[in-house]
Design a binder for these strands. Structure first.
Length: 614
DNA sequence: AAAAAAG
């Protein structure tokens, strides 16, 4: 690697002006041997792992050819979705519009790849190698459901359409990731899907490709009702945070470039007027956060009656206590077509069983898919836990940051993401880091949307290579080059921990995750120790002792969420207690009639091999 | 108890 991207941006980051990484003043620095130590022997703070900084996600290499002529598989289980609107020609529309350009708007689309191409030269071949596909070998995969469509090995095996294939090439995706290999054929076949797969493994594309492809193929036949100032999207993608919705929107725009499929994003904290204007210009795929969407629905500026595809990203979060009522309102109490008419896809890295049960309401004869994390479990993330008293956390963090700089992680522009539990705590820690000379910023729900987006940009660019965050940044955000995730405050839920550390070690790259554990985190001891064990991490002896204590002390154990979801999970329909009998398969009675074969459960691995999934 | 998501 002669000229890495990191090198190429280094000047701008450690540049001549204010952004020189200042040496923190030593006045507040307490050397380790002068600090309070817990009675139990915690490992010394060694930042020995010289982990590579994350590279770009995109992969370079030969382009994939597209194969035309094969038509999509029959749309099993769907009753067509004309919904009373006849098929009719669409003016100037659709897939044969080789000139690209939106067929329902006069504006020209900005080339979303322009930036990439402009910076292309900054990447040499190695740096540009993108997704580390070796890390994807031997990943345990579990599928469950009736007549699960088989996986593919290349994008060319699926008829996604010429324009989408070209965009896939532009994104330099050489071959599908495991979740894409399985999820795309399932979606193309028209099946509902509940998928567990870590975000860094290509989940967004896994639900975007079938949606874009499906819409593009039918766009010219779809007649939407004409209601002034009401938009009728064909697909809805919901996510739990504004930044994640933005990210999905950006991705979806790349994938749909010159397909004639229009993507619009709507989220709170931003001017609604511009979003309304965008919607009026026409929308095929709406990406949104729940609150703003409810607002738009109540104003009747959006109708869901033409929704053909519904995707919930971070679906378990979307269905947890805070979000469930809003999601039910959107999905069940407005004008969205019911399961079986629309196609529904739920994605998350974690899927607790009770959430799966709730989610089943939204699905019809669905396929359950669990794909191991890149490198199966988290071999690519080195997890460390250190016992740190509350009063020692700040100086301990400073130790880590110092060590990191000495190991060159800063010089390579490795980013450090520090999670805290509260918004107040985020402000306080950001301030403390700044006055101690560390270039930090913060993101949390009490900051304005403008501040949030600025903070994220500044972090991503390496301008402020330390970001203090609440759980607003825990899920889904794809920030290349995050070399280190610090759980300054551990979350109470092991699933949140899984999502947080998943901000590093993405796209097959290595990452480091450090957690500060103390007596406030007792309830996490057992699940954390188990998780680390399962992902082949070294579990400190003191943590094992805490874990053992937690199991009889009460208070432990419950955190497992009923046998829960680790890196993936298990279809709750297989868990034996079918309190609702065969109801979950009931949708198949009519819909699956075309399938003259009995249900078969395709399982890629025997139960002995999938222990990580239990 | 906290965080997120509408204004």
């Amino acid at each position: 690697m002669k000229t890495s991207w990191a090198d190429s941006v280094e000047n701008s980051v450690v540049g001549p002006d204010k952004n020189v990484l200042p040496r923190p003043s030593r006045s507040t620095y307490v050397p380790p041997h002068l600090r309070n130590r817990p009675p139990s022997s915690e490992p010394p703070v060694t930042s020995n792992s010289s982990l590579p900084a994350n590279d770009r996600v995109n992969a370079g290499g030969p382009a994939v050819g597209s194969r035309w002529g094969s038509s999509a598989k029959p749309d099993i289980g769907r009753q067509g979705y004309g919904q009373g609107y006849g098929y009719s020609g669409r003016t100037g529309g659709g897939r044969n519009n080789r000139n690209g350009g939106w067929d329902h708007g006069m504006e020209r689309q900005v080339n979303p790849f322009a930036d990439d191409e402009a910076t292309e030269d900054a990447f040499n071949e190695q740096e540009n190698s993108g997704i580390n596909f070796d890390a994807y070998e031997d990943i345990p995969v579990e599928t469950n459901g009736e007549n699960v469509p088989p996986p593919v090995n290349t994008f060319a095996e699926i008829d996604l359409g010429e324009e989408l294939n070209q965009n896939i090439r532009r994104c330099k995706y050489v071959k599908p990731t495991p979740v894409q290999r399985y999820a795309i054929p399932i979606s193309i076949a028209g099946r509902d899907l509940m998928a567990c797969a870590q975000t860094g493994s290509g989940k967004t594309a896994a639900f975007c490709f079938p949606i874009i492809s499906g819409i593009q193929k039918e766009l010219q036949y779809i007649q939407r009702p004409r209601v002034a100032r009401t938009a009728f999207p064909l697909a809805l993608i919901l996510s739990p945070t504004r930044e994640l919705s933005c990210q999905i929107h950006d991705e979806a725009k790349k994938f749909s470039y010159q397909t004639g499929v229009k993507v619009v994003v709507a989220y709170g904290g931003a001017q609604i007027s511009q979003q309304l204007r965008e919607l009026e210009r026409g929308v095929d795929i709406l990406v949104a956060t729940p609150g703003r969407l409810v607002d738009l629905l109540e104003r009747a500026r959006v109708s869901l009656q033409m929704i053909r595809y519904l995707a919930l990203d971070e679906a378990d979060r979307m269905l947890d206590m805070g979000f469930e009522p809003q999601i039910r309102k959107i999905v069940e109490q407005m004008d969205m077509p019911p399961p079986g008419i629309r196609q529904t896809m739920l994605f998350s890295a974690t899927f607790p069983r009770e959430i799966q049960r709730l989610a089943a309401d939204f699905l019809s004869n669905y396929v359950f898919l669990a794909v191991g994390r890149v490198g199966s479990s988290t071999d690519l993330i080195v997890q460390r836990v250190e016992y740190v008293l509350e009063s020692d956390k700040r100086s301990h963090l400073m130790d880590l940051l110092h060590a990191q700089r000495e190991n060159g992680l800063y010089d390579k522009q490795g980013l450090t993401l520090v999670f805290v539990e509260t918004k107040k705590g985020a402000d306080a820690l950001e301030h403390w880091l700044c006055i101690n000379g560390f270039p930090a910023t913060s993101i949390h729900g009490d900051r304005t949307q403008q501040e949030r987006e600025l903070a994220l940009r500044s972090f991503k660019s390496g301008n402020t290579p330390i970001l203090v965050a609440t759980d607003v940044a825990a899920r889904g955000l794809d920030i290349p080059r995050v070399a280190h995730v610090v759980n300054f405050d551990l979350p109470n839920d092991i699933d949140d921990y899984v999502h947080r550390i998943g901000r590093t070690g993405r796209a097959g790259k290595m990452g480091l995750a450090t957690a500060f554990f103390n007596d406030n985190n007792l309830s996490l001891a057992k699940p954390l120790a188990e998780l680390m064990q399962e992902s082949n991490q070294e579990v400190p002896a003191w943590l094992t002792r805490y874990a053992a204590k937690a199991s009889f002390g009460g208070g432990g154990g419950r955190n497992r969420k009923a046998g829960g979801a680790r890196f993936g999970g298990r279809d709750f329909r297989r868990e034996g207690s079918f309190t609702k009998g065969t109801e979950y398969y009931g949708g198949a009675a009519g819909a699956g009639a075309g399938y003259g074969v009995p249900a078969s459960y395709a399982t890629a691995y025997g139960s002995g091999v999938t222990s990580a999934w239990d």
